[in-house]
Design a binder for these strands. Sequence first.
DNA 1: TAAAGTAGGTACGGAAAAGTAACTACCCTT
DNA 2: AAGGGTAGTTACTTTTCCGTACCTACTTTA
Lengths: 116, 116
Amino acid sequence: MPKTPPQCPMDSILRLLMGPWTTYIIWVLSDQGPQRFGALKRAVPGISTRMLTERLRMLQSAGVIWREQAETIPPAVTYGLTPRGNDLRGVLDTLGHIAERWKDEGVFADDELGTV
Amino acid sequence: MPKTPPQCPMDSILRLLMGPWTTYIIWVLSDQGPQRFGALKRAVPGISTRMLTERLRMLQSAGVIWREQAETIPPAVTYGLTPRGNDLRGVLDTLGHIAERWKDEGVFADDELGTV
DNA sequence: TAAAGTAGGTACGGAAAAGTAACTACCCTT
DNA sequence: AAGGGTAGTTACTTTTCCGTACCTACTTTA
């Protein structure tokens, strides 16, 4: 993203969440609790390993998620929302209600749903 | 973004809002009301004309924003939130409060703010 | 036995997305 | 006259992301 000085807190949080898959990952962790890397990857259909890795690093760096690495073979790394990340729960809940309303309104492409 | 079948309404809305600048644009329209293209571009620091154009087309297509073109030279096009787009107001308000809290916690890079 | 599977990554070449600069045609201001 | 404004569009360049292959050390399957 472009390097511009933040204008206000809202600008900063929007830029933080703006990157691809960011909100989606947060939602999965919020909805399903702490997840291993592979489970997280499966819960976010379409995300690539490299994107998941990078997003998780960013979110961890921002203090939104925690990362716990077990000393095992094969490696087992678990990710979860920090208390700070939990701040976003309400937002995601509201978004979920809106999503259901929008679905009823036919906002999301019906043709793909129709074929499922 | 990848072409995967939506899993649920939340998946769909997250994908809709996932694209770069999307939420930012919606917030500006929510916060400041209907805007002309140029004003919108100035209100979203760092966005390019091509990205703003593309995002606006997408949001219009999704029924989140409206577009009103005046028959003038030079062209004057105004964009605003539809009633559906207004659904997101509460979410953005909440996000704003969280942003202020996170700012106090030092989540956003302080060094840039310090030099402003 | 060899191959496949498990986990969470990393490296690489290519495709896709985004950035950048120039341009449009008209009107208004300096 | 030059410059600024309007909302884009286009062509080229740069950056980002994807898909694939690979890594480790162990277990399971054919």
